[in-house]
Amino acid sequence: MIVVELGKLFRRRRTWLTIALLNLLPTIVAVLLAVTGIAPRPGQGPAFLSAVVANGSLFAIAALAIVLPLFLPISVAVVAGEAVAGESQAGTLRYLLIRPVGRTRLLVAKLVASTAYVLVSVLTVAAVGFVVGRLTLGNAPLSQSMVSVSGTLLTPGQIAWRTVLAIAFITFSMLGVAAMALFLSTLTDSPQTATLGALAFLIGSSLLLTIDAARPLQPYLPTRYWLTFVDLYRDPLLLSGVERGVGLQAVYVAVLLGAAWANFATKDITS
């Protein structure tokens, strides 16, 4: 069933179109930076953009920082929101269930497919960012060191494995979005409702992060630690935010998936 679901997702033109669009914004930013040479001053604009003008390879990380706050969660919410509600809307859900596919099995397959989508899109953004960065923003030799966020130098080897960690962290953060959208997807027969519901949840969370009065809530908001992946490029490595982020996402994922399963396993399928 997992293979079937992966096939359904990745043999669909729409999936690749979404991933292509996801890469469009970082590419535009890279081209603009290359043409104008105007980088934001350190500490302003998306993370790492000030560094990429000197070293195009770093644009892989900058590209992730660009799509992380909005575009990546939107595409994840679209895919995961579609997972069950899309089948339900098309009427194919009932035929899958009487084939029979166990309900838990179907949900797990949908979850794995959504996770695979998250991983593929994050990796694609990093890879495209790397290639585009090198093509447009200077071909500094790969062996060149990078100035860390703390101001010291990081060797290319350190950058590489920290980038792997960053990709893993971002993927895991997006699983929280996927779990939310999947849960809503089991509640409604309309994929759009599930997607928009998940986005409303994230936008609400982002909004509360900007309000001082909401400070007691902030450590528990799902988007709170997303950008802490920047800490992975500090020297020495600062892991407290990343660790808290992973813990918080794990709780959200577990609770939301549990709710999705509890709802879907006993739901009357009337679509």
Binding site: M1, V3, V4, G7, K8, R12, R13, A90, G91, T92, R94, Y95, L96, I98, R99, P100, V101
Partner: peptide, 24 residues
């Protein structure tokens, strides 16, 4: 059950293939 349903972007044979592969 209550009318047929299929994935609109796929052919009839592809739909049946998915259905066949989905179950035991």
């Amino acid at each position: 059950v209550e009318g047929p349903a299929a994935y609109g972007h796929l052919s009839g044979a592809a739909n049946l293939t998915i259905l066949d592969a989905s179950g035991p």
